[in-house]
Design a protein around this nucleic acid. Structure first.
Lengths: 220, 220
DNA sequence: TAGATTGTTAATCGATTAACAATC
DNA sequence: TAGATTGTTAATCGATTAACAATC
């Protein structure tokens, strides 16, 4: 398996990788051995040049006329994303959103395993959500250390987001996936990714609103 | 209320608007009348120049020495995002994620109201999730037309995402919020926003993996 | 061989950041 | 007035897209 030097990768390219991976796996399942950037671009409604540029970052070398080896590509993307190893995570805040993430089967395919949930609500503590125990938030620091947990999924109410983030950092967490609608401030070495449902909805609603405003303007 | 011409807005700026709005509302609740770009930047761990550039898009004019009028800013951002009007939406696919979105209280503040859910599972049809009825997918087209629904939240399994999107488009939907890990292909005039949990996780896991790979390399 | 596809280098585009005059 | 802050214009940065030689 010949690979060239790994190139630097843009954040946008990383976000597209799961789309490529799904498609590659789909082709493998259909018995295809190779797939070209042209094919991928057509399926994902994008441009072949972007696909080639993105895939260059995986280090996989394609073959003129044939495209890329599907198996090799799948393995390279999974390695690039770290989806070839299981990642254990704690979920902090066992509310609606937290419970949904625990039940989100897709994560297993991505190598993400939520091993415990934490909450401060005595009613929730001691219960289980789809086999995942809800523990007291008091035990957070101790268990992060003992279980060598690197990733925390933050689904607490926004008011306690910053404070909880600071607890996680003191306990030695390496990465925080922040689902709260605020920006948490942590040291640079801590990896933070914010998945903000409000930000996603803002894209949609602003465009719908712009359309509506234009219509009102046109009708006087 | 003096406003200047509305400027064009980047997607990234739109995504930041909810953060600004939350902060502004918080300041209003604390009795503050104005807030400056410097203050906002400090609170959100970003640069004042970016805040000013973003806020310029709302059309609100600030005052040197004082900053921006909080009330005016809140109203302008809500109008820009379309959060000043209630948006009714259908949710398609009443699985785990779908149920969580129905229960996500935050949406009400954003003016988003999920009025019905649709599924093809006879066990689910006829039940309610937090007061939202689960209806048969067979009634989708009819009800979109009758209730003048503009927005559909797509939480179906990935295999049926494209087909379901096409049904929504034929029924006259204007916007689709796509939570499936695939790109749906629809006519240009249909507004699509993809919120992909896998893409968000890819950011985190790739950085954790890069860190781990570096460590292995360093230890020989 | 002819032609589809890769991968590199250059050009373009868009967003962020810097500099600074205008303002209260 | 002095000084903090705004808002504009220009410079920089990063990502996307285009052009094209190399390859099988």
């Amino acid at each position: 398996m010949e690979t060239k030097e790994i190139k630097s990768i843009s954040k946008a390219a990383i976000r597209r990788m799961p789309l490529y991976l799904n498609l590659v796996k789909q082709q493998i399942a259909m018995g295809e051995k190779t797939l070209s950037s042209t094919f991928i671009a057509e399926k994902l409604n994008t441009e072949a040049i972007q696909v080639r540029k993105d895939l260059a970052a995986t280090g996989v070398v394609g073959q003129p006329r044939l495209g890329f080896c599907a198996e090799e590509l799948a393995a390279a993307i999974e390695r690039l994303l770290g989806w070839d190893n299981l990642q254990e995570a704690f979920l902090i805040g066992a509310g609606n959103l937290g419970a949904a993430l625990i039940g989100y089967e897709q994560f297993i395919e991505n190598g993400l395993n939520i091993v415990a949930a934490f909450d401060n609500d005595p009613v929730k503590i001691g219960t289980e959500i789809r086999g995942v125990k809800v523990l007291s938030i008091d035990r957070l620091e101790n268990l992060i250390g003992r279980m060598h947990i690197k990733l925390a999924i933050l689904t607490v109410p926004v008011e306690v987001a910053q404070h909880t983030a600071e607890r996680l950092v003191s306990a030695g967490i390496e990465a925080i996936w922040n689902f709260t609608p605020t920006k948490i401030i942590v040291p640079d070495e801590v990896i933070v990714e914010r998945t903000d449902l409000a930000a996603g909805y803002a894209q949609i609603s602003s465009r719908l609103a712009a359309k509506a405003h234009r219509k009102v303007a046109a009708n006087g």
